[in-house]
Design a protein around this nucleic acid. Structure first.
Lengths: 338, 338
DNA sequence: GACTGGCACTTGACCAGGGAGAGTGCCAGT
DNA sequence: ACTGGCACTCTCCCTGGTCAAGTGCCAGTC
């Protein structure tokens, strides 16, 4: 028995099952693939594959379906990366280039990713903690109110309005602005936060209350976890494809989507490159029939955040991986141009 | 045959059907309500109600279920408004008061509304076109870049960065800022947009290119439909309650949620007060088994935008209406405090 | 005249039983 | 090492029969 053919059989089973959503038997498998052997031979191969845990039978003497381990093998060693069609590439490009700001980029990528993959798409906003400070603005509003604006290297603009204990002089505001700018621009946000703390003591004691209040607010903004965890989700209507059993297939996904924390875990750490997590690999018990394809995106080789799709384990992995990878590249490029 | 009792019967049918999700027959109806008459009498009343179109039988000689017209009657004339429990009121209040900015207010209201009603919650961001300008800031960044910030009366902060053809002088920027401020602060955004247009010609011809570019960007921001249509959605996991037929009950709602335009239509015009749209009244054919409860919210009596819930027509209308109304009031108050 | 009890009737829901079909494992043969 | 053949095992689907819930109607009662 040749090892090569056994793997071919596994690949064929995965492809057929993904296409038809039905357990695949030895005969129907031969109808769709020319393997040059008889059904009986295939059956032997299947028995071996089952022994090794790559496929299973939903019930005795039905066709076979791939196990998580089978999909894993398929993804790791059997799948040939399916290049996107030129039309798809163009679609991504034209759709993304219309974006006016970071918010828009994220929103458009969710849409395009959902559309390309027919799955649920998730895009994390560019991480604040991984960006650097590009510009800081301190503006006096009416009364003792002050507007603080931070623009990051990835184009995100965060702002906050605070009320000071007393109205600061025009000159003090200017002084604060230029010193903060000097201390933070170009720094990554967590470090900028440290510099700010050190800076307070360089001001005259009289001014400290105002300076402190401004600086702590900025620090909070720099290290704000809430805004670091912002996420956009789209394509939930594609949940239809997950199966017809609402409680086991669809509800868990909807629940995961509602909980940002869970969602972030799903996307995983922003390690560079494409990650595929299948079934139990998601680390979420109720998502056992779900798979996540995710990729970091960023400026140059610097990972900024993560995006990806959530779909049924029985998905078209090559196509999904190609789409996720392509969108990640384009988004990275968009943010770099900005 | 007393008219009063017939309406009591209708109310009882609606309540029972909402509670059990099963067609209600004359006997089981008497088990749960003391109407003081026999099943046969109820049957006669039911026959009359059916003739008038308030209830129907899913099939010959099954129990009755309310029609859209029946629900409408229930909502208009039969439902006694169910006051929220003190615990619920406190829940809303404590949950909303933690919010730090408008974004946060909206996000928290979606959550709390979804949780209270066990339905899908929708909250529209405070409309820009209905707000007035509170503050405008023009800040020179590095090179010829300029940051424009608009703060509205409802606390929304919109910002945009543009690249000018040439680097403006510090003085020109200051001049533009003060004149724009003078012309727009306190105005509603559409009017402010007009004032800006008039203002261009008061500048020296040399400065016009720069002024024009800044002013048009601001105008766009003021009248930007995209940001006027921002919407937050939550509680999609509650779709489980819509029924077990994915294609007819759940998918249409998910599709509506994906399309902001559809969603906005659903919420409806921000007329003040509570609006209930049942089945075909939603104006969306595929949402025939869905009902929308919505309410405008705003500062004082000035409607700013709309929020509401989407649920199955067989929902607990009194409870839902109470929750939507309460959240709308609290959100309005939050934004006024801001 | 309004209500009630009784009765015949209708209908979907819920089994049980019985092919049909797809697929398997295994074995003897090439 | 592969193949053809065969007995076997499941699910799927159809049929038929019973059951319970509910109805409409009618004659009778207060």
């Amino acid at each position: 028995m040749s090892d090569d053919r056994r793997l071919d059989v596994l690949r064929a089973i995965v492809e057929d099952y993904v296409a038809t959503q039905e357990p695949v038997g030895s005969r129907s498998l031969l109808d769709r693939h020319q393997l040059g052997v008889s059904p009986a031979t295939i059956r032997n191969d299947m028995a071996a594959l089952e022994d090794e845990g790559y496929i299973m039978q939903p019930y005795t003497s039905a066709g076979r379906i791939p196990t998580d381990k089978g999909y894993r093998m398929f993804v790791d060693r059997l799948a040939t990366v399916k290049a996107l069609s030129p039309a798809e590439r163009r679609a991504i490009e034209t759709f993304l280039t219309g974006a006016v700001d970071v918010d828009d980029v994220v929103q458009r990528s969710v849409r395009v990713l959902a559309q390309l993959t027919n799955q649920v798409a998730i895009v994390q906003y560019p991480s604040l903690t991984r960006s650097t400070v590009r510009h800081i603005e301190v503006v006096a509003l009416e009364g003792a109110r002050v507007l603080l604006v931070v623009i990051t290297s990835s184009g995100r603009v965060e702002q906050r309005i605070i009320e000071l204990v007393e109205t600061p002089s025009e000159q003090l505001i200017g002084d604060i602005r230029s010193r903060i700018t000097g201390a933070t621009v170009g720094q990554r946000l967590p470090e900028a936060s440290l510099r700010l703390a050190e800076m307070i003591e360089t001001f005259a004691p009289n001014d400290r209350p105002i300076v402190t209040s401004i600086v702590t607010t900025l620090s909070q903004t720099f290290t704000n976890e809430r805004s670091d965890e912002r996420i956009a989700v789209g394509g939930t209507a594609n949940l239809a494809r997950f199966g017809n059993d609402f409680d086991t297939a669809i509800k868990p996904v909807l629940e995961a989507i509602e909980e940002q924390v869970v969602l972030l875990k799903l996307l995983g750490e922003a390690t560079s490159g494409l990650t595929v997590r299948i079934g139990s690999e998601t680390g979420n018990e109720s998502l056992s029939s779900t798979a996540v394809v995710s990729s970091a995106y960023g400026l140059d080789d610097q990972a900024l955040a993560t995006l990806g799709t959530v779909g049924p384990t029985r998905m078209d992995y090559p196509a999904t991986m190609a789409a996720v990878g392509a969108v990640a590249r384009y988004v990275g490029r968009m943010l770099a141009d900005n």
